[in-house]
Design a protein around this nucleic acid. Structure first.
Lengths: 356, 356
DNA sequence: CGGCCGACTGGGAGCGCTCTCACCGATGCT
DNA sequence: AGCATCGGTGAGAGCGCTCCCAGTCGGCCG
């Protein structure tokens, strides 16, 4: 940066206040154990000089920088196509800035990026990391672990062993419970042939939602299950398939609002009235979709911002050191390690609109 | 951070390689002017020790940290409700990581946050800043200027004097041209009573789009103009008003897809067929909306990711120092200061679908 | 009234890295 | 042969801050 005037240093503040650098430092950092008279002098000097501590110098000795990394894998994916991501960021940002920490956003798209991120995390630029959308066995957690960097994962990790990995702390919404809510509602409506359009089955959120569907319909016809891809198009295709297999279906639970909107359109084109002929329930409650479909979509809402806040809070607590357990936050804390912090599942709830 | 093993320092690398710290440093930073033999030795030492440079120490002396801040005002607003923001971030991230810079995300919600951000920018945590959604005369640019921090603004600043402020460099899409495209298309279709639903008129993007509408329809009936708020609801309300004022209207240009979706619904409820009775054109081409309305929306697309990339590129070029002018990027460079970098307007184009 | 204790304060040693400059041997030139 | 030159290399001085440790100075106890 082009510095116009040489920036004031702690040294200059101390000089102006007529105290030692050590004392000035004490005042700047809270002023414990410094007589009020001196404290005031230093404060005035800081004011007059417009002194701002140099974070690099501080970090050099304290070994932390009040910053955490938010690593987002595959930004090309749905993470960037719906407001999910932005809302999550907002929650994280709020929690972090309340704790006076900064958020460093990193996007991973290809192999090369993994190295970049790995180097960054290893470099000690940040005190901790929030890892998102981990699919396959992802190298990120191991990288972080290797350099001793605390981290929290967003979304239940899906690979073998992840569940039993005691320091793999994650935050996820109650996908399974939400799906149960949706399908239960459909059944309570008296529907008897309830289909489902799932998300890609290599993602835990899709799997969990499908499990919820099965919880309610343990003996369901497999022909009533079709896989989508979280896009409106895919939802439409899956719906068409479902219609071909079971023309008699009278309800559909789509595992995302986007897929539901595609399904709605296919259903309409097939001449089905909604909700009279076929009741439809979505998932996510993405405002720009759910409230504006024709008819408005009954769906399952997850508190996305809260998830972000929770993740940040969990990480912050880990940083604070101590084995401080997270207060059982909204949702059933899922005990993993008897001694460490705990993963959290946030609740979901049904939003009733016209489609079911 | 809990360091398990004391992290290797440049000193230890030098020792292991049998060279001085200075030489080791040279190798780590590119290896200019070091004999191949030594270079190799150092590289091996780095490898064996798993050495990663300490960024804080480096920043302390170089005075820059390969990081830029992305400051987003009022995250509660539309910035977070449509994918606009996420896409922009993606563009910024791509450009930045190509230049090996990091992105520090800061959200400003209230007065208190302004102070926090101001302190952060003044602290030298970052080498530059990208400022978003500046409405009223915003303190941010001045803050940045005061501490000599290079910055680029997203979206044309709207207050008096901003336009003539020669180092207020911004990137915006061609809102006015896009609106001209939309309205021109409607007119070419033979429509004679073309209405428009504007965005909130305290935002330059709304104003510019309205100007584009007027460019094509200089003698239009003011009753054909209604103000919305960029939400589907607001769009619907404005549409209803328009319908009441001019029941004979046969086309509508909505200044955002979200508002268009609301307008579509009101139009449908009023029994108008689209596009037969009323042709509708939106703005933004937000995929989750435009492609899935009933009928699919003809709209104006802006390359949002490109805007992000451009902003980052502009800033990076500023940082690189030199009066290097930005290459006239896609779009008409709008000359402000004859000597400095230049604001950029990115092109928009019409996407034809069924609604018009 | 001397000695101690405790609350403050200052001195100084780094944190890990970059960068200037002096130095060194090997060339190249006159 | 004598001397300026030059690519390479190392020594050392900080960058601005924190924090340990020793020193100072009242006040209070015996």
């Amino acid at each position: 940066m082009p510095e116009q005037t040489p920036r004031p240093t702690l040294e200059s503040v101390a000089e102006r206040a007529g105290v030692s650098r050590a004392t000035a430092s004490r005042v700047v950092n809270g002023g414990e154990g410094v007589r009020e008279a001196l404290r005031e002098k230093v404060r005035r000097a800081v004011e007059e000089l417009g002194y701002v501590p140099n974070p690099a110098a501080r970090t050099l000795v304290t070994r932390h920088n009040r910053a955490i990394a938010v690593v987002v894998a595959e930004p090309g994916s749905r993470l960037f196509s719906d407001p999910f991501f932005a809302q999550q960021l907002r929650g994280i940002g709020r929690e972090l800035s309340a704790a006076d920490h900064q958020m460093v956003l990193m996007m991973v798209e290809d192999q090369h990026d993994y190295e970049r991120v790995g180097r960054y995390l290893a470099g000690g630029h940040v005190d901790g990391a929030l890892l998102f959308s981990l699919h396959q066995p992802d190298p990120l957690p191991d990288m972080a672990r290797k350099v001793g960097l605390p981290f929290v994962v967003g979304g239940r990790p899906g690979w073998a062993g992840a569940e039993s990995d005691r320091d793999l702390v994650y935050v996820d919404s109650d996908n399974r419970g939400g799906a149960r809510l949706a399908v239960g509602h459909l059944r309570a409506l008296g529907r008897t042939a309830i289909a489902t359009v799932t998300g890609p089955l290599d993602q835990t959120s899709s799997l969990d939602r499908l499990d919820g569907y099965r919880d309610v319909l343990p003996d369901g016809d497999p022909a009533l299950i079709a896989e989508g891809d979280f896009t409106p198009d895919g939802g439409g295709r899956a719906m068409a398939e479902l219609l071909a297999r079971r023309p008699d279906l009278d309800a559909v639970f789509a595992a995302s609002d986007a897929m539901a909107s595609g399904a709605l359109r296919v259903l309409r084109e097939a001449g089905r009235r909604i909700p009279e002929d076929v009741a439809v329930v979505g998932f996510d409650d993405v405002e720009s979709i759910a409230a504006w479909t024709e008819p408005p979509l009954t769906t399952v809402r997850q508190d996305i911002e809260e998830m972000g806040r929770l993740m940040a809070g969990l990480l912050l607590r880990r940083l604070a050191g101590a084995g401080a357990r997270p207060a059982a936050a909204a949702g059933a804390p899922r005990g993993l390690a008897p001694g460490g912090p705990t993963s959290v599942i946030t609740p979901t709830r049904l939003i009733l609109r016209a489609s079911a």
